[in-house]
Nucleic acid binder design. Structure first.
Lengths: 240, 240
DNA sequence: CGAAGAATTGAGTCCTATCAAATGCCGTGG
DNA sequence: CCACGGCATTTGATAGGACTCAATTCTTCG
């Protein structure tokens, strides 16, 4: 198999199997019985993306859907004048292209080194039609995303910069806990500009707010992440 | 049948039939063949809500799903300190409770006089399971809502007050056009505070921005609505 | 070690929020 | 019919939080 840089590159680890996939339990694949996983595995192509490589481009055909098995991806839309809104970060276990629309409604690119299972949209769609449980799982997943989107609207429309940062950090932590990686230290693979474009802030405000929280001993800034020192205070702010 | 104010009141027009429902073509019901509409009709209970009456309350069980046939509903979430974010407005043909979760993720109440078809969540869920086309239609509808939510994130996070107002007005107009009510005059059943809480602004900023747009001859303020005078300029701003 | 990019810090401005008052709009009841 | 009260909206004055522009400082990596 050859290596197409524009669509990602199968690495040497291509022997990975759906049956032994570590992320199965957290992914839509959990809906399938073991015997169906063989069918799924036949459809899946493992792919890799280097940092900044594009998975999807806003407005262009999206013939492929991806299930992220490693790394982080930013999903975003752009205005013609360059303003960017990141609508979410996809990480291990997340599905990109759930809507299975002909054309992508947003762009997506790799933040760090990303590994994923790729499926052709048509093949995946057909499998979903034949496996009601999988379809149901997709539907639930979409509903979950809709709920997250609604929470993000509250964050973007009605919260202060400090609240935005705190909610963001707690949100990442909760998400990692749900996929079996709980930790007081929250890893932040994305840069400050990505955080800013997700939270509706500027990069300077993100930086200033983080340093202020660090001065207050609410958090501790560490390389590529943040350690949460005062979770009770953060939880108060997030709830309020 | 008695009249329970907390859950809406069947009016004298209760004889309405799914077969002759004017909103059928724009609603999820469009997925059903005529013979299935009888089944649907048996499950539907027509209800009415007075202005400010509550359909759903955030965090409480939601045993009922509604298909709005007349009037407008605001969907919103509240923070403990009273800050409100309106996540959407439901109007004729829109479905409330799509996610079919046990508990509501947001509150919903009537803006003006609302008429709706009510279904018990369990009965509707069972019907969806037996009619794949209906389920598919529900899924598509959810995907559509997710797309709208993502557009709203861009609006809330990255657009100026004037852009927010303009996008909002054009959005309402497009929506009315899609359900067969195209018009240069955009009706605004919701008050200024509702617009503010939807757009992430204050009521004063909404008012000021509207009057400025009226001074510029971009719009004309009319009772309970706005007439769009310079759509090309508005379209430019919305695209930019 | 040096260059390039990322992050932080600083100074000043602007947009929107806040606080406050005036105006307009209805429905009620005298 | 008109005065009145309550509510929504508009308008004004001021303040503040986040943005902008600009300059360091810190990292990373060849």
């Amino acid at each position: 198999m050859d290596c197409d840089l524009t669509h990602g590159c199968n690495g040497a680890h291509a022997g990975q199997d759906c049956l032994t996939c570590e992320t199965r339990a957290f992914s839509v694949c959990a809906a399938l019985a073991e015997e169906d996983l063989a069918t799924l595995h036949a459809l899946a192509t493992p792919v890799r993306f280097a940092p900044k490589e594009t998975l999807l481009f806003q407005g262009q055909p999206a013939p492929t859907v991806y299930n992220i098995t490693r790394g982080s991806v930013r999903l975003y839309t752009l205005l013609p004048d360059g303003r960017r809104q990141i609508i979410g970060f996809a990480m291990t276990g997340d599905f990109i292209g759930l809507s299975m629309q002909e054309t992508a409604g947003f762009s997506a690119d790799a933040i760090d080194a990303v590994e994923a299972c790729a499926f052709t949209r048509t093949a995946y769609s057909a499998l979903a039609d034949s496996k009601p449980l999988l379809l149901r799982r997709l539907h639930d997943q979409t509903n979950h995303e809709l709920m997250l989107a609604q929470e993000q609207m509250m964050l973007l429309g009605r919260r202060s910069a400090e609240e935005k940062i705190i909610c963001f950090l707690l949100g990442i932590q909760q998400r990692l806990a749900r996929i079996g990686r709980p930790s007081i230290t929250v890893p932040l693979p994305m840069g400050r500009q990505d955080m800013a474009d997700f939270l509706g802030l500027t990069i300077e405000t993100v930086s200033r707010t983080l340093t202020r929280l660090a001065r207050d001993r609410t958090i501790l800034l560490v390389p590529d992440g943040v350690r949460l020192l005062n979770r009770s205070h953060m939880a108060m702010v997030a709830a309020a």
